[in-house]
């Protein structure tokens, strides 16, 4: 398995690599890239909410139930700070602070 996957943001077409076992938000931040708004980075505040719209698999770590419901999870909605890709992913950014999403 490749150690790195491509994360594409559907709205802007922006693309950045994410290592396996790295969360998507941390991958974006470490490269100095933008597109997904950054909040607490701990799965608590809901600022980095995204929806996986296409991709080859992912897993999530524990997130606040107040921010991501079971129904959200079933719809591919999660927090980018707790999203670990297992293949290339395309994401739609749902988070707050949309003006950060340039």
């Amino acid at each position: 398995m490749s150690g790195e996957f491509n994360i594409t943001l559907a709205d802007s077409g922006a693309c950045f690599p994410c290592k396996q076992d790295q969360n998507v938000l941390a991958a974006m931040e470490k490269l100095g890239r933008r597109g997904i708004p950054v909040g607490c980075r701990g799965g608590g505040c809901g600022i980095c909410r995204v929806q996986v719209v296409a991709g080859a698999g992912y897993r999530t770590q524990k997130m606040s139930r107040a921010q991501v419901s079971e129904a959200d999870l079933a719809a591919g909605i999660c927090l980018a700070c707790k999203l670990i890709p297992e293949g290339d992913l395309t994401l739609r950014v749902l988070g707050l602070f949309r003006r950060d999403c340039d």
Partner: peptide, 8 residues
């Protein structure tokens, strides 16, 4: 800063 659950 934030704790691991996102509490500031």
């Amino acid at each position: 800063f934030f704790d691991p659950s996102g509490n500031r």
